[in-house]
Design a protein around this nucleic acid. Structure first.
Length: 211
DNA sequence: GACCAGGCACATC
DNA sequence: GATGTGCATGGT
Protein backbone atom coordinates (compact mmCIF):
# COMPACT_ATOMS: atom_id res chain seq x y z
CA UNK A 1 0.00 0.00 0.00
CA UNK A 2 1.11 3.53 -0.68
CA UNK A 3 -0.26 5.99 1.84
CA UNK A 4 0.16 8.97 -0.44
CA UNK A 5 -1.86 7.42 -3.22
CA UNK A 6 -4.71 6.55 -0.88
CA UNK A 7 -4.48 10.03 0.62
CA UNK A 8 -4.99 11.49 -2.85
CA UNK A 9 -8.03 9.28 -3.28
CA UNK A 10 -9.52 10.37 0.04
CA UNK A 11 -8.91 14.05 -0.64
CA UNK A 12 -10.52 13.82 -4.06
CA UNK A 13 -13.46 11.80 -2.79
CA UNK A 14 -14.04 14.23 0.06
CA UNK A 15 -13.94 17.11 -2.40
CA UNK A 16 -16.02 15.72 -5.26
CA UNK A 17 -18.07 12.93 -3.72
CA UNK A 18 -19.08 9.82 -5.65
CA UNK A 19 -18.82 10.32 -9.42
CA UNK A 20 -21.25 7.55 -10.31
CA UNK A 21 -19.37 6.39 -13.34
CA UNK A 22 -19.92 5.22 -15.99
CA UNK A 23 -22.92 7.30 -17.09
CA UNK A 24 -24.78 4.74 -19.22
CA UNK A 25 -27.89 2.57 -19.11
CA UNK A 26 -26.27 -0.69 -20.22
CA UNK A 27 -22.84 -2.33 -20.48
CA UNK A 28 -23.11 -2.01 -24.26
CA UNK A 29 -23.67 1.71 -23.95
CA UNK A 30 -20.52 1.90 -21.80
CA UNK A 31 -18.62 0.15 -24.55
CA UNK A 32 -19.92 2.47 -27.26
CA UNK A 33 -19.09 5.48 -25.10
CA UNK A 34 -15.60 4.15 -24.42
CA UNK A 35 -14.82 4.14 -28.13
CA UNK A 36 -16.51 7.45 -28.85
CA UNK A 37 -14.77 9.31 -26.03
CA UNK A 38 -11.26 8.58 -27.30
CA UNK A 39 -9.45 11.92 -27.15
CA UNK A 40 -12.83 13.63 -27.06
CA UNK A 41 -14.80 15.66 -24.54
CA UNK A 42 -17.63 13.67 -23.00
CA UNK A 43 -20.28 16.28 -23.81
CA UNK A 44 -19.68 15.60 -27.50
CA UNK A 45 -20.10 11.88 -26.89
CA UNK A 46 -23.43 12.55 -25.19
CA UNK A 47 -24.73 14.13 -28.38
CA UNK A 48 -23.54 11.20 -30.45
CA UNK A 49 -25.18 8.67 -28.15
CA UNK A 50 -28.41 10.67 -28.12
CA UNK A 51 -28.36 10.58 -31.93
CA UNK A 52 -27.84 6.81 -31.88
CA UNK A 53 -30.75 6.31 -29.50
CA UNK A 54 -32.85 8.44 -31.81
CA UNK A 55 -32.27 5.84 -34.53
CA UNK A 56 -33.49 2.96 -32.40
CA UNK A 57 -32.60 0.85 -29.36
CA UNK A 58 -28.90 0.96 -28.51
CA UNK A 59 -28.20 -2.74 -28.97
CA UNK A 60 -25.42 -4.59 -30.81
CA UNK A 61 -27.89 -6.04 -33.34
CA UNK A 62 -29.45 -2.69 -34.18
CA UNK A 63 -26.10 -0.94 -34.53
CA UNK A 64 -24.66 -3.78 -36.56
CA UNK A 65 -27.43 -3.47 -39.13
CA UNK A 66 -27.08 0.29 -39.52
CA UNK A 67 -25.51 1.40 -42.81
CA UNK A 68 -21.99 2.65 -42.33
CA UNK A 69 -22.91 6.13 -43.52
CA UNK A 70 -25.88 6.38 -41.14
CA UNK A 71 -23.75 5.31 -38.22
CA UNK A 72 -21.01 7.80 -39.08
CA UNK A 73 -23.48 10.68 -39.40
CA UNK A 74 -25.06 9.85 -36.05
CA UNK A 75 -21.77 9.87 -34.19
CA UNK A 76 -20.44 12.91 -36.01
CA UNK A 77 -20.53 15.23 -32.96
CA UNK A 78 -18.03 13.00 -31.15
CA UNK A 79 -15.33 13.74 -33.70
CA UNK A 80 -13.11 11.39 -35.76
CA UNK A 81 -16.49 10.09 -36.83
CA UNK A 82 -15.38 8.05 -39.85
CA UNK A 83 -12.71 6.24 -37.88
CA UNK A 84 -14.88 5.72 -34.85
CA UNK A 85 -17.64 4.39 -37.07
CA UNK A 86 -15.27 1.79 -38.44
CA UNK A 87 -14.05 0.99 -34.94
CA UNK A 88 -17.59 0.36 -33.73
CA UNK A 89 -18.43 -1.77 -36.76
CA UNK A 90 -15.20 -3.63 -36.31
CA UNK A 91 -16.15 -4.53 -32.76
CA UNK A 92 -19.71 -5.39 -33.75
CA UNK A 93 -18.45 -7.70 -36.48
CA UNK A 94 -16.44 -9.66 -33.95
CA UNK A 95 -19.34 -9.77 -31.51
CA UNK A 96 -21.67 -10.99 -34.24
CA UNK A 97 -19.30 -13.57 -35.72
CA UNK A 98 -18.15 -15.14 -32.51
CA UNK A 99 -20.66 -14.30 -29.79
CA UNK A 100 -24.00 -14.06 -31.58
CA UNK A 101 -24.12 -10.33 -30.84
CA UNK A 102 -24.35 -11.16 -27.14
CA UNK A 103 -22.21 -8.94 -24.96
CA UNK A 104 -22.81 -11.25 -21.97
CA UNK A 105 -21.26 -14.11 -23.93
CA UNK A 106 -18.16 -12.02 -24.63
CA UNK A 107 -18.02 -11.03 -20.97
CA UNK A 108 -18.01 -14.70 -19.94
CA UNK A 109 -14.33 -14.76 -20.84
CA UNK A 110 -11.82 -14.52 -18.01
CA UNK A 111 -10.36 -11.04 -17.54
CA UNK A 112 -6.98 -11.61 -19.18
CA UNK A 113 -8.49 -13.34 -22.22
CA UNK A 114 -11.15 -10.68 -22.55
CA UNK A 115 -8.54 -7.95 -22.41
CA UNK A 116 -6.53 -9.64 -25.15
CA UNK A 117 -9.63 -10.06 -27.32
CA UNK A 118 -10.41 -6.37 -27.00
CA UNK A 119 -6.83 -5.28 -27.65
CA UNK A 120 -6.71 -7.47 -30.74
CA UNK A 121 -9.35 -5.24 -32.34
CA UNK A 122 -8.13 -2.31 -34.36
CA UNK A 123 -9.32 0.83 -32.63
CA UNK A 124 -9.30 -0.51 -29.09
CA UNK A 125 -6.12 0.33 -27.21
CA UNK A 126 -5.23 -0.17 -23.54
CA UNK A 127 -7.32 2.64 -22.08
CA UNK A 128 -10.44 1.77 -24.05
CA UNK A 129 -10.03 -1.93 -23.26
CA UNK A 130 -9.53 -1.28 -19.57
CA UNK A 131 -12.47 1.14 -19.42
CA UNK A 132 -14.63 -1.61 -20.88
CA UNK A 133 -13.23 -4.17 -18.44
CA UNK A 134 -13.81 -1.95 -15.40
CA UNK A 135 -16.96 -0.01 -16.24
CA UNK A 136 -18.83 -2.46 -18.45
CA UNK A 137 -17.63 -5.86 -17.24
CA UNK A 138 -16.95 -4.91 -13.61
CA UNK A 139 -13.43 -6.33 -13.48
CA UNK A 140 -10.84 -5.02 -11.02
CA UNK A 141 -8.66 -3.33 -13.65
CA UNK A 142 -7.31 0.17 -13.05
CA UNK A 143 -7.79 2.51 -15.99
CA UNK A 144 -4.87 4.80 -16.78
CA UNK A 145 -5.26 7.90 -18.87
CA UNK A 146 -3.30 11.05 -19.66
CA UNK A 147 -4.65 12.77 -16.55
CA UNK A 148 -3.56 9.92 -14.28
CA UNK A 149 0.04 10.09 -15.46
CA UNK A 150 0.06 13.89 -15.52
CA UNK A 151 -1.29 14.18 -11.98
CA UNK A 152 0.86 11.44 -10.46
CA UNK A 153 4.00 12.77 -12.13
CA UNK A 154 3.33 16.34 -11.03
CA UNK A 155 2.99 15.01 -7.51
CA UNK A 156 6.31 13.24 -8.01
CA UNK A 157 4.94 9.76 -7.60
CA UNK A 158 5.86 8.76 -11.15
CA UNK A 159 8.22 10.06 -13.82
CA UNK A 160 6.49 12.12 -16.51
CA UNK A 161 7.39 9.69 -19.29
CA UNK A 162 5.87 6.65 -17.56
CA UNK A 163 4.19 4.26 -19.99
CA UNK A 164 0.60 3.07 -19.70
CA UNK A 165 1.63 -0.41 -18.57
CA UNK A 166 4.14 0.90 -16.04
CA UNK A 167 1.66 3.34 -14.53
CA UNK A 168 -0.99 0.64 -14.33
CA UNK A 169 1.41 -1.74 -12.63
CA UNK A 170 2.49 0.87 -10.12
CA UNK A 171 -1.02 1.98 -9.20
CA UNK A 172 -2.23 -1.60 -8.96
CA UNK A 173 0.70 -2.46 -6.71
CA UNK A 174 -0.14 0.39 -4.38
CA UNK A 175 -3.89 -0.02 -3.99
CA UNK A 176 -6.13 -2.75 -2.61
CA UNK A 177 -7.77 -4.62 -5.47
CA UNK A 178 -11.29 -3.31 -5.33
CA UNK A 179 -13.63 -2.67 -8.26
CA UNK A 180 -15.50 0.14 -6.53
CA UNK A 181 -12.27 1.87 -5.51
CA UNK A 182 -10.85 1.56 -9.04
CA UNK A 183 -14.11 2.83 -10.49
CA UNK A 184 -14.28 5.90 -8.26
CA UNK A 185 -10.58 6.73 -8.29
CA UNK A 186 -10.21 6.88 -12.06
CA UNK A 187 -13.34 9.01 -12.33
CA UNK A 188 -12.03 11.37 -9.65
CA UNK A 189 -8.67 11.71 -11.39
CA UNK A 190 -10.36 12.62 -14.65
CA UNK A 191 -12.53 15.12 -12.81
CA UNK A 192 -9.72 16.92 -11.00
CA UNK A 193 -7.60 16.71 -14.13
CA UNK A 194 -10.25 18.49 -16.18
CA UNK A 195 -10.69 21.15 -13.52
CA UNK A 196 -7.07 21.87 -12.68
CA UNK A 197 -4.39 19.80 -14.37
CA UNK A 198 -3.93 21.29 -17.83
CA UNK A 199 -1.30 19.92 -20.22
CA UNK A 200 0.79 23.05 -19.95
CA UNK A 201 0.61 25.62 -17.22
CA UNK A 202 -0.38 28.96 -18.67
CA UNK A 203 1.98 31.78 -17.93
CA UNK A 204 0.49 34.79 -19.72
CA UNK A 205 2.91 37.63 -20.19
CA UNK A 206 5.94 35.79 -18.89
CA UNK A 207 9.09 37.45 -20.28
CA UNK A 208 10.76 34.05 -20.48
CA UNK A 209 8.11 32.64 -22.79
CA UNK A 210 9.76 30.96 -25.75
CA UNK A 211 13.25 31.36 -24.30
C1' DG B 1 -7.74 32.16 -33.06
C1' DA B 2 -5.29 29.02 -30.03
C1' DC B 3 -5.86 25.37 -27.14
C1' DC B 4 -7.84 21.24 -25.53
C1' DA B 5 -10.70 16.90 -25.00
C1' DG B 6 -12.12 10.35 -20.64
C1' DG B 7 -6.66 7.62 -27.81
C1' DC B 8 -5.21 4.91 -31.41
C1' DA B 9 -2.98 3.24 -35.65
C1' DC B 10 0.37 3.75 -38.86
C1' DA B 11 4.58 5.61 -41.26
C1' DT B 12 9.21 6.56 -40.88
C1' DC B 13 13.78 6.71 -39.13
C1' DG C 1 12.06 1.27 -29.93
C1' DA C 2 11.20 6.04 -30.13
C1' DT C 3 9.11 9.82 -32.42
C1' DG C 4 5.82 12.21 -35.52
C1' DT C 5 1.34 12.63 -37.80
C1' DG C 6 -3.64 12.15 -39.16
C1' DC C 7 -8.06 11.77 -37.50
C1' DA C 8 -12.65 15.96 -36.46
C1' DT C 9 -16.11 18.05 -33.71
C1' DG C 10 -17.23 21.46 -30.27
C1' DG C 11 -16.31 24.36 -25.94
C1' DT C 12 -13.49 27.85 -23.51
Amino acid sequence: MNDKLLDIYRILFDHYGPREWWPAETPFEVLVGAILTQNTAWRNVEKAIANLKQLGPLTPEALFHLPEETLAEAIRPSGYYRRKGKRLRNFLGMLSDRFECRIEALFDLPTETLREELLALSGIGPETADSILLYAAGRPVFVIDTYTIRILSRHELLPEETSYAEAQQWVTDHLPEDVQLFNEFHALLVNVGKDFCRPRPKCPGCPLEGF
